[in-house]
C-alpha cells in the first residue's frame, strides 16, 4: 500500500497481428492538443488508470439488474456482471461460459459505476464481443471453463483493459506481460474460504520481497526460475510491489476477510458469491465497503461486523480438497 503504482504514460500500443482489434485512437484528438502527441485511447496508461481509480474499493459479482443496483447503492466501486456466481457454477457443474451480452448490457444501463464481465481463459472472441458492447473491464477468469489450456488472450491487442488472476509472482508477471492492466489473486472462488487468496497474496508479496533484495545477476536467475520477463521483475523489485493495481479475490465472505487481504497488501477486493448468498446482502455489502476503507481500524471493523446475519455457508478448501464440487479452479491457466 505504501508505494505508488507505476503507470507508463503515453505508451502507444504495438499494432496487433489480428487486424480486427487494432487499437483505435480515442475521441478525435490528433496532434491538435497543446504541442504534444495528441490524445490517445486504449493506451496502457489509460487501461491501468481505471484500475487506479478502483483502488480501496470493492468489486461485487451481480447476476441481475436488482443486484447491480443494490451493489451500487451499497458503495461498490464496480460490478462484475455474470449469469451465475461462482458458488452456483460449482453447484451446477458443466461448462461455464461468457454471460449473455444482453444481460450484461442491461446491467450497464442500470448503474453508473464501471461494469466488468468475465471471459474464458484464452477465448479471444468472447473478449472481442465484450469489447464491442463496451464493458469497462474484462476478467479473463479461471472461474469459467478454460477455452485454451496452453495460451491466454493477447491482451495488448485490445482497447478494453483486462484483469487476470494469479497464484504467485511469476504468474502475475506473465499476465502483465500479455497485457493485463490489473491483477487479482485467484483464491478459490465460490467457496467462501479465504485461505487460498491469503496463500496467493502471501506468495506474491514474499517473492517481491526476495526480488527487492537481489542483485541484477540474481534477478536474471530469479526471472528464469519464475518464468517471468526480466524487465517486469526488475520493475517490480524497484517498486517493491506489482507494477499494476492488485486486488484480492476468491473466497472473501466477511468484512474481516476483506480487511485481512488489505492488510496483506492488496489494493482492493473482489467479492463474488459472499454477498448475494448471505442472509442480508445489502448490509453485508455496505459492511465490506467500510471494511476496505478502514481496514486498519479494529474498533470500526467490530462495529461493521456486528449483526450482519448469516454468512454464506461455504466449502472448506482444506477439508474438501480435490473432492469439492467443481474442483480447484485456481489450477486453471498458469
Amino acid at each position: 500500500m505504501s508505494e505508488p503504482t507505476v503507470v507508463p504514460s503515453s505508451n502507444p500500443l504495438p499494432t496487433t497481428a489480428n487486424g480486427s482489434s487494432t487499437p483505435v485512437f480515442g475521441r478525435g484528438v490528433s496532434g491538435q492538443v497543446g504541442g504534444g502527441a495528441g490524445g490517445a485511447g486504449g493506451t496502457f496508461g489509460v487501461k491501468t488508470g481505471l484500475a487506479q481509480m478502483l483502488k480501496g474499493g470493492v468489486i461485487m459479482d451481480v447476476m441481475n439488474v436488482e443486484q447491480a443496483k443494490i451493489a451500487e447503492e451499497a458503495g461498490a466501486a464496480a460490478v462484475m456482471a455474470l449469469e451465475r456466481i461462482p458458488a452456483n457454477i460449482r453447484r451446477d457443474g458443466g461448462v461455464a461460459r461468457m454471460s449473455d451480452p444482453g444481460m450484461i448490457k442491461q446491467i450497464m444501463e442500470a448503474v453508473s459505476i464501471p461494469v466488468m464481465a468475465k471471459v474464458r481463459i484464452g477465448h479471444m472472441v468472447e473478449a472481442q464481443i465484450l469489447q464491442s458492447i463496451g464493458v469497462d473491464y474484462i476478467d479473463e477468469s479461471e472461474v469459467l471453463t478454460p477455452a485454451d489450456d496452453q495460451h491466454h488472450i493477447g491482451k495488448h491487442a485490445f482497447k478494453v483493459p483486462f484483469v487476470c488472476g494469479c497464484k504467485n509472482l511469476g504468474e502475475a508477471l506473465r499476465r502483465i506481460s500479455e497485457g493485463a492492466a490489473m491483477i487479482r489473486t485467484k483464491g478459490e472462488a465460490g467457496t467462501g474460504d479465504v485461505v487460498e487468496a491469503v496463500r496467493h497474496q502471501r506468495a506474491v508479496m514474499s517473492d517481491i520481497r526476495r526480488a527487492a533484495s537481489m542483485s541484477d545477476e540474481e534477478l536474471y536467475a530469479f526471472a528464469k526460475e519464475l518464468s517471468a520477463p526480466y524487465h517486469l521483475l526488475k520493475e517490480t523489485a524497484r517498486l517493491k510491489r506489482l507494477p499494476v493495481v492488485s486486488f484480492a479475490a476468491g473466497g472473501v465472505a466477511t468484512p474481516a476477510d476483506a480487511a485481512l487481504m488489505m492488510q496483506l497488501g492488496c489494493d482492493g477486493v473482489f467479492v463474488g458469491s459472499g454477498i448475494f448468498l448471505s442472509g442480508d446482502p445489502a448490509k453485508r455489502a455496505r459492511a465490506i465497503v467500510q471494511a476496505v476503507t478502514h481496514y486498519n481500524n479494529p474498533s470500526l471493523l467490530a462495529e461493521v461486523s456486528t449483526d450482519l446475519g448469516e454468512a454464506m455457508v461455504g466449502i472448506s478448501v482444506s477439508t474438501e480438497g480435490e473432492r469439492m464440487q467443481g474442483g480447484r479452479m485456481a489450477g486453471r491457466g498458469n
Partner: peptide
C-alpha cells in the same frame, strides 16, 4: 463515455511553470 472512450491528451497549460511543456 465508458472506459473505451478514456484517453490521454498532451496539453499546454499556461498557468503552470514551464508553460510550453505539454502536460500529459
Amino acid at each position: 463515455g465508458t472506459q473505451l472512450e478514456s484517453f490521454e491528451a498532451h496539453m499546454e497549460i499556461p498557468a503552470l511553470s514551464q508553460p510550453t511543456k505539454p502536460f500529459n
